[in-house]
Every structure is written in structure tokens, then in C-alpha cells.
């Protein structure tokens, strides 16, 4: 399955745009997606931290991702 992944803040600069995509096996977990993203974009691993959001919620590393989910890379937030 192909997952579209939104990127914000510094993650947008790291992936080179507002979104990127990844071809992943079905029943992929958030942890597997993180590994794939860090292979593709080593700069992600150098951030202080980052989270993956699935359907507008912070996702645990063992959460499963489905093809129609809205997935996003959330680098360290700094609002306010």
C-alpha cells in the first residue's frame, strides 16, 4: 500500500515538501513507518524527537496504519 505522509515545520524541509509517500506492506506499524522514514530521511533521526500522528491523533509505536489513514510527521512543537 502507498501511504501519503504530511510533513510540518522542520520535517517539511527535511522531506522537501508538504508531504511525501511511502510504499509499505499492509499491517504496517507506526514503528515500522518511523524506521522507513529514517532510512529515507536520516535528518529525521537527528531531531530532538518526533511523533507520528494518525487521523489527527498522536499514535503509539505499535498502532497499525491503514491505506486511507491521514498520517503526519510531527516534529517537536513550539507554539505559543
Amino acid at each position: 500500500m502507498t501511504i501519503n505522509i504530511l510533513a510540518f515545520g522542520i520535517a517539511k524541509e527535511i522531506v522537501g515538501g508538504a508531504s511525501t509517500s511511502a510504499d509499505l506492506p499492509s499491517h504496517t506499524t507506526v514503528a515500522q513507518l518511523r524506521r522507513r522514514l529514517e532510512e529515507q530521511y536520516p535528518q529525521l533521526g537527528k531531531l530532538a524527537s518526533y511523533m507520528i500522528a494518525v487521523n489527527n491523533e498522536y499514535a503509539a509505536t505499535d498502532s497499525l496504519i491503514n491505506e486511507q489513514d491521514e498520517v503526519a510527521i510531527i516534529p517537536p512543537v513550539s507554539g505559543g
Partner: peptide, 28 residues
Amino acid sequence: AIDTLKQTVPIWKKEVFLDGEEWVAAHP
């Protein structure tokens, strides 16, 4: 509210200086 907003809400700020720019809190 403000303390929690700064920790959990997905909003980001980039500081632009005279000699460069930096996404706040992005790097250790």
C-alpha cells in the same frame, strides 16, 4: 492552558534572525 499548549499542540515556529533561521526546539 498555555503550558500544555506549548507541549502538545501541533504548531511550530521558526525564528528568523539577521544571520540565519531556526525551527524552535527542533534539535537537541
